[in-house]
C-alpha cells in the first residue's frame, strides 16, 4: 500500500518526555499513527499522556524493553544531538526495523560511526536532520484509509494517493506536497531523507522502494546542491532501476559556491555538486525537471496528462 510504513505499523518514540518528543508524539497520535510507547532512560515504568490527543503510552528505560513489551517495528528519535548517535545504535541493537532520526546537528563523525555500526544489520535508518516519513491517511474512494505519520511534517497538507515523494529538504517538501494535494494528486508515501552529509537512506534506496510498490505510480524527487546523491539517482533511473515517471527539482541554483559546502568533499564525490550538474544528469535520465519550485505540482500534472495517467492518479 506504501513504502516503509503503513497504518498499522507500531511506533515508539525515543525522547518522548522532551519538548519535541512530547509535542510531535501528540500530533502523531492525533493523525492516527499507531504509537505504542516511548523511551526515556530513567523514566521507565511511568506513563506519558498526550495533551491534545489524550493518548496514554507506557514509558520504558531502554528500547529493548519497549520492543519486548510493545512489539514496536519503528522508532522515531527526538533526543538531543549529543545523544542521538547512541539512540540510533540502541534502536538498531533492539531490532527496530525502521529508525527515523529527526534530530538536527549530530556531529559528522558520530554519523560516520553510526553508519559503520549499522552496516550488515537489517535496520533501515531515515535521516538524521529530516522531517520524517508519512503514509498519508484519510478518506479516499469513500474508504477511510489509515495513515502513519512519523515526524514533524504538518499532517493536513497530505492526501492519500499514488504519488511518491522523496526529498532532502523539509519545508520545500511541504511546498511540493501542498502543490500536489491542491491539484488533487494524493501521495502514497513521502520520505524526507535529510540534509546531512552522512545519512542512512539515499534517493536510490527510496526510488527502488517506490519502483517495487504497486501503489506508487509516479515520483517527485527534490534534491539540493552538494554531494552526489542526485547523480546516483540519475544513474539508477538511466539503468532501468526506476521506470516510473519522475518529476525532479534541485534547490540552490543560485547559491554562491563555497559558502556552505567544503570543496574538497565535493571533489572526492567526483563532481562539484552544483545544481546545473545535477539538473543535467537527471534530465539526461529522462526526469521531468520543474523549472522553478512553484511548478513542481504542475510539472507532475502535465507529465501525468501526457502519459494518460492523470485520471487514475487524481482519483
Amino acid at each position: 500500500m506504501s513504502i516503509f510504513v503503513q497504518g498499522d505499523t507500531p511506533v515508539i518514540c525515543q525522547g518522548i518526555t522532551g519538548a519535541n518528543g512530547t509535542f510531535h508524539t501528540d500530533q502523531a497520535c492525533l493523525y492516527g499513527t499507531r504509537m505504542v510507547g516511548g523511551v526515556t532512560p530513567g523514566k521507565g515504568g511511568t506513563s506519558w499522556t498526550g495533551e491534545k490527543s489524550g493518548a496514554k503510552l507506557p514509558v520504558f528505560d531502554t528500547v529493548d524493553a519497549a520492543v519486548r513489551a510493545t512489539g514496536a517495528k519503528a522508532s522515531v528519535i527526538y533526543v538531543p544531538a549529543a545523544f542521538a548517535a547512541d539512540a540510533i545504535c540502541e534502536a538498531a541493537a533492539a531490532g527496530i526495523e525502521l529508525i527515523v532520526a529527526i534530530t538536527e546537528g549530530i556531529p559528522i563523525l558520530d554519523m560516520v560511526r553510526v553508519k559503520q555500526s549499522l552496516a550488515g544489520k537489517p535496520s533501515r535508518l531515515i535521516g538524521p536532520n529530516c522531517p520524517g516519513v508519512i503514509t498519508p491517511g484519510g478518506k479516499t474512494h469513500g474508504v477511510d484509509f489509515p495513515g502513519c505519520k512519523i515526524g514533524i511534517m504538518p499532517g493536513y497538507i497530505h492526501k492519500p494517493g499514488r504519488v511518491g515523494v522523496v526529498s532532502r529538504s523539509g519545508t520545500l517538501t511541504y511546498e511540493a506536497v501542498w502543490q500536489l494535494t491542491s491539484l488533487g494528486l494524493g501521495q502514497s508515501t513521502c520520505v524526507g531523507i535529510g540534509g546531512d552529509p552522512v545519512n542512512g537512506t539515499q534517493f536510490v534506496d527510496v526510488l527502488s522502494a517506490f519502483q517495487a510498490d504497486p501503489n506508487t505510480d509516479a515520483i517527485v524527487m527534490i534534491g539540493e546542491i552538494g554531494g552526489s546523491a542526485e547523480e546516483e539517482a540519475a544513474a539508477l533511473i538511466q539503468s532501468g532501476g526506476c521506470t516510473k515517471p519522475v518529476v525532479g527539482f534541485i534547490a540552490g541554483t543560485t547559491a554562491p559556491p563555497g559558502k556552505r559546502m567544503g570543496h574538497a568533499g565535493a571533489i572526492i564525490a567526483g563532481g562539484k555538486g552544483t545544481a546545473a550538474e545535477k539538473v543535467a544528469a537527471l534530465q539526461a535520465a529522462g526526469v521531468a525537471m520543474a523549472p522553478n519550485p512553484s511548478a513542481i505540482g504542475s510539472t507532475m500534472e502535465a507529465l501525468l496528462t501526457r502519459k494518460g495517467m492523470i485520471a487514475k492518479l487524481r482519483g
Binding site: G170, L172, A251
Partner: peptide, 15 residues
C-alpha cells in the same frame, strides 16, 4: 524563510 531547502528555492525564484 523557514527551512534551508525552501530558503534556497526562494533565492532561486527571486533570480
Amino acid at each position: 524563510v523557514n527551512g534551508a531547502g525552501l530558503a534556497m528555492a526562494t533565492m532561486d525564484t527571486i533570480q
